[in-house]
Amino acid sequence: MITALSRIIKYGIQIFWRNGWVSVATILVMVLALLVFHNLIIFNVLTGEVITLLNDKIDISVYFKNTATEDNILQLQDALHSLVEVKNVEYISQAKALELFRERHKDDEVISKSLEVLDKNPLLASLNVTAKDPRDYSVIASYLDDKNLSEVVEKVTYNQNRLVIDRLSNMVGTAEKAGLIATIILAITATLVTFNTIRLAIYSSKDEIGIMRLVGASNMFINGPHIVNGVIYGIVAGVISLIIMVPVILLAEPYVSVLLPEINLTAYFSANFMKFLSYQLLFGIFLGAASGVLAVRRYLKL
């Protein structure tokens, strides 16, 4: 079995070399498909990070009237905690709010002096609510809209970042769909080109195939080398596309770090290199093997 397999691979490699420039052209088309696929993965990662970063900045702030007691506030905090949608509720007392305000404006002399003039704390106590999922804010907001709470709640601010994030998510979704469509179109093109290359290889090996049949070679032995040939295209294209991605990542890194300082593209690429290599190889091998199987089924009826 191992001997047979090694010979099938050997014949597959022979066909690959024999095809010369046709093999090169096939690999180039496959590289294009794989590069788009690779970029789609990176795009997904980047946009995912951006959305996560923005999501972390959303919260709901509930401001309490001066008449509200701390007990009222803590009761509402407990009630919010019990909601499954709520991830965290932070209580900021009037004193804490003033302290934070002072800290934030310590360099602003006018504000500092104005605060000194005031005889009482003008800021309101509040609860900052964070949801487990950004989509849950509307549920929390409607919970806080309760009439019974109006006696103690001054106002509820539903951070307007939500609108920006929704729009961004929609744009990312559209871009992802476009990328996916481009990948599918290029994958089909690559499959067709590979399919045709293998068809040519089958025609040019006609004599050899005839003799193989004549001497009683098994179907696996006749079909196998052509499928191996397709797989070789996939492997070579996978490796080449990954090699091309290295300088692309290095060139893109400074621009990405300006837009998204939290993301280190090179580090991410290095850390996930093996994963990327596996994806590229698997996708390439899948395209090559599928083309090989299709061509063999169509043109090598045994």
């Binding site: 001997t3 047979a4 010979r7 003799i211 001497v215 009683g216 070679a217 098994s218 032995f221």
Partner: peptide
């Protein structure tokens, strides 16, 4: 070649 495709050593 005839023996190779038949899996001979």
């Amino acid at each position: 070649f005839a023996l190779e495709v038949d899996g001979h050593a």
